[in-house]
C-alpha cells in the first residue's frame, strides 16, 4: 500500500479553524440579507407583542406593584421586554432547527465531509443568523419603546454590558440546542424537546416579566435554575447596568456553555455512528 501519509494535507490549528467559523458566519449573514423584506416582516410580530404587553402591564398596575418590590418602573419593564423579546425571537424556533432537517434530507452528507467539524460549521451559521436578527429586533424594539413609553436612562455602558453577556449566552444556548438536535441522529424527531427547552427559557428565564416580579414559589424555582442567566440577567443589565452583576452573569454564561460541551461532544460522537442518511 502506498499512498504516502506525509504527502497529505492536514487541517490547520485553532486559529485557522476559528477563521473558518468566521467565514461561515459571514456568508450566512450575506445569505440572510438577501431576504431583508422577510426579516422586516417578522418584526411586525415583535411590535404587536410589545404593544400588547405595554397595555397589559398598565392594566394590571404591574409597574406600580413591581416598583415597590424590585425597583423597575413601568417604562423600564417595557425596555426590559424589548431586550428579552429580541433575545428570544432571534433564536431559531423549534420548527426551524437545521440539524434535524439536514439529517432527514441527507444534506448532512456535504457538511460532514468537510475539513471543518460539523458542529463548528453549524455554530458559525447559527451565530450569523442570530446576530443579524438580534440586532434588527433590538433596533426595532427600541424604536417602539421610545414611541410607546418614551426613553429611559439608557447608557452605552448598559448596552455594552448586556450585549456582551447576550453574545456569550448565544454560544451557550447554541451548545445546548445543538446537543438536543444531535439526538435526531437516532430519534426521529426532536421538535418536542426543542419546544420544551425554549419554553423553559421563556418562562423560567423571565422573558415576560423580571424574575423579581414572579410569585414567590415560581420565583424560587426560576432562581434555582440556570435559565435566568440566559434571559433575565442580560436584560436586567440592559436596564440597570451594574459591573458586579455583569461579572456574575458573564461567569454563569461561560459555565453554562462549558457545561454543555461535554454532553454535546458525547452525544455527537455516539450520534455519528448512527447516521443513516437518505438514499441507497
Amino acid at each position: 500500500m502506498a499512498a504516502d501519509r506525509q504527502a497529505l494535507r492536514r487541517p490547520g490549528g485553532l486559529l485557522l479553524t476559528a477563521g473558518k467559523v468566521w467565514a461561515v458566519l459571514c456568508i450566512t449573514l450575506r445569505s440572510r440579507l438577501a431576504y431583508v423584506g422577510e426579516l422586516l416582516l417578522r418584526t411586525l410580530f415583535l411590535i404587536l407583542i410589545l404593544f400588547t404587553f405595554t397595555q397589559l402591564w398598565h392594566a394590571t398596575n404591574l409597574g406600580k406593584n413591581v416598583l415597590v418590590a424590585t425597583g423597575f418602573t413601568i417604562q423600564e419593564l417595557i425596555w426590559y421586554l424589548v431586550f428579552t423579546e429580541a433575545l428570544m425571537l432571534s433564536a431559531a424556533n423549534a420548527r426551524e432547527i437545521e440539524v434535524d432537517s439536514e439529517v432527514r434530507s441527507g444534506d448532512i452528507a456535504y457538511r460532514l465531509g468537510r475539513p471543518l467539524p460539523y458542529p463548528l460549521f453549524h455554530l458559525g451559521a447559527r451565530l450569523g443568523e442570530r446576530l443579524l436578527r438580534f440586532g434588527l429586533y433590538l433596533l426595532v424594539g427600541m424604536v417602539v419603546a421610545l414611541v410607546v413609553v418614551g426613553p429611559i436612562q439608557l447608557s452605552l455602558a448598559g448596552l455594552w454590558l448586556s450585549c456582551s453577556v447576550a453574545l456569550v449566552s448565544f454560544v451557550g444556548d447554541w451548545i445546548w440546542t445543538f446537543a438536543i438536535s444531535v439526538t435526531s441522529f437516532w430519534i426521529e424527531d426532536t421538535f418536542g424537546l426543542h419546544l420544551l427547552y425554549r419554553r423553559a427559557l421563556m418562562i423560567l428565564g423571565g422573558m415576560l416579566i423580571p424574575l423579581s416580579a414572579y410569585p414567590e414559589w415560581l420565583g424560587h424555582i426560576a432562581r434555582a435554575l440556570p435559565f435566568q442567566y440566559l434571559v433575565y440577567y442580560p436584560a436586567r443589565l440592559f436596564v440597570h447596568p451594574d459591573g458586579q452583576v455583569w461579572l456574575l452573569a458573564l461567569g454563569a454564561n461561560l459555565a453554562i456553555a462549558l457545561a454543555g460541551l461535554l454532553p454535546l461532544l458525547v452525544i455527537y460522537r455516539i450520534g455519528l455512528r448512527f447516521v443513516s442518511t437518505q438514499g441507497g
Binding site: 426521529e188 421538535f191 418536542g192 419546544l195 420544551l196 419554553r199
Partner: peptide, 17 residues
C-alpha cells in the same frame, strides 16, 4: 416516537403557559 413526543411536548407547553 415522533408523534408521542410531540403530543406530550405540546401538552406540557400549554400547561407551562
Amino acid at each position: 416516537l415522533s408523534f408521542v413526543s410531540q403530543v406530550f411536548a405540546m401538552l406540557l407547553n400549554d400547561v407551562i403557559w
